[in-house]
Write a protein that binds this DNA or RNA. Structure first.
Lengths: 255, 255
DNA sequence: GCAAAGTCTTTCATTCAGTGAAAATGCACT
DNA sequence: AGTGCATTTTCACTGAATGAAAGACTTTGC
């Protein structure tokens, strides 16, 4: 929030709701005011507008949480709908094939945003969640999305301080660059315990009709499945399947 | 829109985005202004705020469509997250068992809102879509939700003019009431070609920890599967499974 | 049970951001 | 090039927004 800078009512209203993507599930009015950097009375007025519209609900304990209305509008996004519709059958294939987790993610700013996630019963528990953002350099899908981005974008991203989540996280810009180059050639990535111990993320790109990489699809499995190389192929095929469903006519399966 | 009535900036901003739940995927500025009942210049300002925030995107042809930001915030809704996480494995079971469509819906106002939908390859094409609202009386999930609502709510709903979608749609309030009573006893509904010819919707309620009906789960299959009564049981079991995952401890499978 | 602290809600004089008719500009079609 | 329609810009005017402070409510600690 830009203290002292003139802000429109609209931007303040939207700033209030935005708090909920980076916060705990439910927040008190005082919390919201603090995080919004708005006076209490002003915050209350905005929160009341959101509640009236359905974007926030008030819980029994007086805190506020996101309501369903935003989702209802948001899910109309054409890009999301077509991507999700194309990907779901293939995510399901991955679920059946791995008995673990399957995910679909897109690029948002300098992060990866999880758009879909389906998990098998008793699967490895993951940090990621639908609607969650995670860093590009430490996730399979993030690396795929980064590898298929423009050079300027990659340069900018690599100027950010890259956080090391585990001993396995690759954060050296030089090494990241080499890795991205390799991913571009192979069209696939295997990230082993780079965000969280015990899990391996296998990811492949999803291309749209024009050949642009619009998402990444992944299977996230336990390290115990490390030697099962058929999983690699499953993910590749899934990525190509979704791409085809989106109208892509190229070929990127065989490295 | 209340012409001539004083409106807050916030409510007007939210009114603009709301247009997109009831409209075509993409709208021109003039369309938005017309549907919002706002002057062009005012509409432009609001649309620009939404674009700046990510709630709307401008397409190549100059029209506007919903962006991903709303979805990203909206999907944080705790009620949606827990419901979806509980339901997905069971929706998948239904998908595998029916080879058709599985859906999860909630009650919103006087309509049912589809929260999740997964479809098998080559399944019967449905009218419903994630984020879509449909009438309670003509859909399996809607009937289940209605049957498990309070008497006042039912009375109010039945005072609305009920639309007849096909020859099979039940719209006589007296008949609807009897049907709802039956659903409450059996905990299940089978809606045959009431919204759309050729499809049968089998639905069961989803209860939360407190026993309240918070959603309905359904399989929507082709009329050719009419005689497969194992599908009924699948849906019931799925409903109970999701309920259990939500902490429900009652029993409603055996009629 | 009571007092203190913290949180939420209301009030209203002041102000500043919002407004929209009309003009200007842009775009598509014939 | 001309026409019609859509979008963008301008700016005098105004009405909605503001937030400090008081009041009301809730929670916590003794």
């Amino acid at each position: 929030m830009l203290a002292g800078k003139t802000r429109s009512v609209s931007s303040k209203l939207l700033g209030v709701i935005e708090i909920f993507t980076a916060s705990d599930v439910a927040l008190s009015l005082s919390d919201i005011a603090r995080k919004s950097d708005l006076p209490l009375a002003t915050t209350l007025r905005f929160v009341r507008e959101w509640v009236a519209w359905g974007g926030l609900i008030r819980l029994d304990d007086g805190r506020y949480a996101v309501g369903t209305r935003l989702w209802e509008v948001g899910v109309q996004a054409p890009s999301l709908q077509s991507l999700r519709n194309a990907a779901l059958p293939f995510l399901d294939d991955l679920l059946v094939g791995t008995r673990q987790n399957a995910q679909l993610a897109i690029l948002q700013g300098f992060e990866t945003l999880y758009v879909e996630k389906i998990s098998a019963r008793n699967s490895t528990v993951l940090m990621s969640r639908v609607g969650m953002r995670l860093p590009l350099h430490a996730t399979g899908v993030g690396l795929v999305l980064l590898a298929n981005s423009g050079q300027n974008y990659i340069d900018e991203y690599l100027e950010l301080p890259l956080k090391k989540y585990t001993a396995c996280t690759v954060v050296d810009p030089r090494q990241v660059r080499q890795r991205l180059a390799s991913i571009r050639v192979t069209g696939f990535v295997r990230a082993e315990e780079e965000l969280h111990s015990g899990v391996i993320s296998l990811a492949a790109p999803v291309h749209d009709r024009s050949g642009r990489t619009v998402a990444a699809i992944s299977a996230v499995v336990s390290v115990e499945q490390r030697n099962d190389r058929s999983l690699d192929m499953m993910v590749r095929v899934a990525g190509l399947g979704v791409s085809r469903a989106l109208g892509f006519r190229g070929s990127r399966v065989a490295p």
